[in-house]
Amino acid sequence: MNAIDCSLYLVTNSDPFPEERFLKIIEEALQNGVTLLQLREKELTGRAYYERALAVKKLAHQYHVPLIIDDRVDIALAADADGVHLGQSDLPVSAARRLMGPNKIIGASAKTVEQALEAERQGADYLGTGAIFPTRTKVITQQTSTDTLRAICEAVRIPVAAIGGLNRKNVHVLDGIPVSGFCVVSAIMYSETPGAAAKELAAISNEIQAMGRKL
């Protein structure tokens, strides 16, 4: 099992940004507490996704942060990214593990305890659970209760990161739940000061994890 720090997990959204601004936002976030970075591109061609993955990997590795590719095992392998994150409609974790080997990171989305346990059994290194709140992204999401999130955290041994519409104003809904961290998109990508946003969220994540561990 690969050791994963999900404390502050940034999932990218490039839609509104020119390339230079997109990369600048990511770099500022990496400088200020992001511990895991997921490149999510739903509409790029395979070649464009690959080329962007190489550019983002260069930044991520400069700051010693693993790069995870959303959905696409082929892109993750071609770009030699650190891992891949798989949804319920993507390749099974076990198939991705056979293709990627034991040393790559594989994350999985899980909305139920059953899905979480199955992903862990198949070899997932961490889970993303949500959406805790509605999101601004184009990804279609189904809301997940904090009770379900807690049950998943307590059922598995691998890290669980909460995801979905989380920001500095609402993230304390996770207080007391033994999450390993949380994922954000808009809270950093759309911030006028992404570095400052990341720094604040990293501090909040540490507080939430400390509270969860006390239970």
Rank of each mutant, 00 (worst) to 15 (best):
residue 209 Q to D: 01
residue 177 I to W: 04
residue 190 Y to V: 00
residue 196 A to F: 07
residue 195 G to T: 09
residue 176 G to N: 05
residue 207 E to V: 12
residue 176 G to M: 13
residue 180 S to Q: 03
residue 204 I to P: 00
residue 215 L to A: 09
residue 210 A to E: 12
residue 179 V to Q: 07
residue 181 G to R: 12
residue 179 V to E: 05
residue 198 A to P: 04
residue 202 A to I: 03
residue 190 Y to S: 14
residue 186 S to L: 01
residue 203 A to S: 10
residue 190 Y to W: 12
residue 183 C to Q: 10
residue 179 V to H: 04
residue 206 N to W: 00
residue 207 E to M: 03
residue 194 P to A: 11
residue 175 D to A: 15
residue 198 A to H: 11
residue 190 Y to G: 10
residue 185 V to F: 03
residue 182 F to R: 07
residue 174 L to H: 05
residue 181 G to C: 12
residue 180 S to C: 09
residue 213 R to E: 14
residue 203 A to C: 08
residue 201 L to G: 01
residue 174 L to V: 07
residue 211 M to T: 14
residue 188 I to E: 06
residue 173 V to G: 04
residue 191 S to Q: 02
residue 173 V to I: 15
residue 176 G to E: 04
residue 215 L to T: 01
residue 195 G to Y: 03
residue 186 S to Y: 10
residue 190 Y to D: 15
residue 206 N to H: 11
residue 181 G to M: 04
residue 208 I to A: 01
residue 179 V to A: 10
residue 193 T to I: 01
residue 191 S to N: 14
residue 185 V to Y: 06
residue 202 A to N: 02
residue 179 V to T: 10
residue 179 V to F: 00
residue 200 E to M: 06
residue 181 G to L: 03
residue 196 A to R: 13
residue 178 P to I: 14
residue 204 I to D: 11
residue 199 K to W: 03
residue 200 E to G: 01
residue 212 G to H: 08
residue 189 M to D: 04
residue 181 G to W: 05
residue 215 L to E: 08
residue 191 S to K: 00
